[in-house]
Simulated assay, not measured.
Amino acid sequence: MPSTPGTKRGDTAPRACANTDLALFFPAEDSPSYTKPNEQEHVAQAVCARCPLAAKTICLENALRLPAQDQWGVVGGATAAQRRTIIRGREAARMIGAAA
């Protein structure tokens, strides 16, 4: 199991969340709203905001490899609802590109 949200073994970038309880990033209930994260998601996003850009990007891209329906918690500074929106946008862009 990864030691911090969105990481894979072998990632070496420093992480703001390294000494933070993972339960903060994975609340019992995700906010369904893209624009209105719940209080716990806000706190987790604040931890992610302190992370170096490279580390946050690694976490987010690793999380975006999962299907939209498997998104949960805050990873790479984005809530599950925000990541689902990103994934759907990327899928739509691929479909448009394939049709062109």
Rank of each mutant, 00 (worst) to 15 (best):
I58D: 03
Q82D: 00
A93F: 06
N62E: 02
P67Y: 01
P37L: 05
Q82A: 00
A18P: 02
P32D: 10
A46Y: 01
Q71L: 06
Q45A: 04
P2M: 06
P37F: 00
I86P: 03
A49R: 11
M1E: 14
A46H: 09
A18I: 11
R65P: 00
I96R: 15
D30N: 15
Q45D: 02
Q82N: 01
E39I: 12
P67D: 09
A98F: 04
L60N: 12
D30S: 11
G6W: 12
M95E: 15
A80H: 10
K36M: 08
T35Y: 06
R88W: 01
A99E: 13
A93E: 11
G97W: 02
P14K: 09
G6I: 06
G89K: 15
R50P: 00
A54D: 11
N38L: 09
A81I: 06
A81C: 08
T35D: 10
K36D: 12
D70K: 10
L53G: 07
T57G: 01
R15K: 11
D30T: 15
V74W: 13
R94A: 08
N19S: 13
T12E: 08
A18E: 13
S3G: 11
G73M: 06
G89Y: 11
I86W: 11
I58N: 02
T4V: 15
R90D: 03
V74H: 07
A99F: 03
R90P: 03
L53D: 01
D30A: 14
D11R: 07
P32K: 09
A28I: 14
A100H: 10
H42G: 05
V43Y: 08
I96H: 13
A13C: 05
L22D: 05
D70S: 11
L64W: 04
R9S: 13
K8S: 11
F25Q: 05
H42C: 11
G89N: 13
C48Y: 04
T57Q: 12
V75Y: 01
I87N: 09
A93V: 04
C59G: 04
P67I: 08
P52V: 08
A68M: 06
D70N: 10
P52Q: 04
M1W: 07
P27W: 00
I96E: 10
S3C: 13
L24K: 09
T7C: 15
A93W: 12
I87K: 13
Y34R: 15
T85R: 15
N62H: 14
N38S: 04
I87R: 07
A100S: 15
D30W: 08
N62S: 06
A92S: 13
P2W: 09
A100D: 14
A23C: 07
C48A: 07
T12C: 05
E91G: 04
G77R: 04
T20C: 03
